[in-house]
Design a protein around this nucleic acid. Structure first.
Lengths: 251, 251
DNA sequence: TTCCTCATATATGTATACATAATTACCGCT
DNA sequence: AGCGGTAATTATGTATACATATATGAGGAA
């Protein structure tokens, strides 16, 4: 009853979850910092019950860690943790691609993936890729990966991939924006798109091992992007997820 | 204030979670059935708040599914879902074994795994394996898999494996008890133990690909056990997890 | 000065009351 | 007799009040 019209659409729990996630990823809540329920109530404007729900969900999401004595703290990640999360996602996406290849995909189901591939081609072929192009690349890339995952037709696997990709630095598009300011940008984009093309081809020809291997290697591009971005320390602001890293990157 | 001494140790939330999980796995709550919060309050004896917490956690655990209009229902699994979950666990454990092999494990860290291996040997070498032996095999097998997972030294991966193994039919020991009444029991046990031995050897010699491959194949033993158990329809009561399966096995 | 203890305060865990949305049942109409 | 609409009931989402456990600070004694 206390709500105005514009907010009525989403639940208080979701609103609290979004607000807290934003606070964490933006770095305003530092890794290791304890999250006060009362404080969260003040900043989010909702009561303790939905705040607690949101905290539990964020813990399952991997952004928070339960404190043994009670409550939650912001999780801290090492660079190794991030690289492992990327490798993990690659392994899972590799399994999805192998399932799709081994089990076969109807031409009708493969259609959307090929369309997505063609859309990506449009972007990659322009030589100086504009920053706006990178933004839309992020969305289209996410769509390609989502479609590919679905082709596994395996709900348990899709669920696990979603969970693994929930951490922003592990998502398929996690470090794409870092490319936009790197000299190697265009090369990496071309290679990534080649991976996309190969995996579609492998699925179509039911080459399971090939599809799996290329998706694993594809994920490692994200690891390369991360390392490159950490070398040239500039433009780390493009990667809010790095606010969660343990020691080095805090400005 | 309302608690007696013996119960004070665990929180109401955990108690509700355990009670509800037991209700689900025992099949008293059927797949697809909506879980009434009020009903859960009556059966568990705790109030709505911890019940809701438990429901959220069980959803993240994979046993419940959120209903769009609100509330939760018991999740239903197909036989394919179960087989995929097993394959998924194998892939993740394979990654853990590969990490351990590639990154190297100190002799001191490998010691507990070798001890666990030796303990398992003791059991496997008796020819007619007693039913009690199978029970302790379940615990020792779980320990071996947990130790192996830890050797990856990768918190994100360990976390994902724990999540994947949370579903009872996907856990490393999920279908071991089914073996106890199967004629092929001893053979499968011997093969499984050989896998254990090989993965330790592969890790010790830093053979990443071999370690990964054998753990994948190892998980497929569980799939074989499942299929065998579903053929000889006897003793399905040893596998309470199958209460979650969609169509066939409901008595 | 330092450490231990006790008291106070604040935090989380739990219970319940209230409001709103959804589902169901019943009645009327076609 | 079947379908649709409305009302009533029940369910979930939210807020808050209460109890308990933990953490912190102050005071006293060694």
């Amino acid at each position: 009853m206390s709500e105005r019209d514009p907010d009525r659409a989403v639940s208080q729990t979701v609103r609290a979850q979004l607000a807290l996630r934003d606070l964490i990823l933006s770095g305003r809540l530092r890794p290791g910092e304890r999250i006060s329920e009362l404080g969260a109530v003040e900043t989010t404007g909702v009561s303790r019950t939905p705040v607690r729900m949101a905290l539990v969900r964020l813990e399952e999401e991997g952004l928070l860690e339960a404190i043994p004595s009670g409550g939650f703290m912001v999780k801290a990640f090492s660079e190794r943790d991030i690289l492992d999360s990327i490798e993990l996602r690659g392994v899972l996406e590799g399994l999805a691609a192998r399932f799709a290849a081994e089990r076969g995909v109807s031409a009708r189901d493969l259609e959307p993936l090929k369309e997505s591939l063609a859309e990506l081609d449009q972007l990659v072929t322009q030589d100086p890729v504009s920053v706006e192009a990178f933004s839309s690349y992020v969305a289209m890339n996410a769509r390609f990966h989502a479609l590919l995952t679905e082709l596994s037709h395996s709900p348990p696997l899709i669920r696990q991939i979603d969970r693994a990709s929930a951490l922003p630095f592990a998502s398929p598009s996690g470090f794409v924006m870092a490319q936009s300011v790197l000299p190697e940008a265009h090369q990496i984009l071309i290679i990534a798109q080649d991976h996309h093309r190969i995996v579609v081809d492998a699925i179509e020809n039911r080459e399971g091992a090939r599809a799996e291997a290329v998706m694993r290697e594809h994920a490692r591009l994200a690891a390369r992007n991360l390392r490159l971005a950490l070398r040239n320390r500039t433009h780390l602001d493009l990667l809010p997820a790095l606010a969660l890293i343990r020691s080095p990157v805090t400005e």
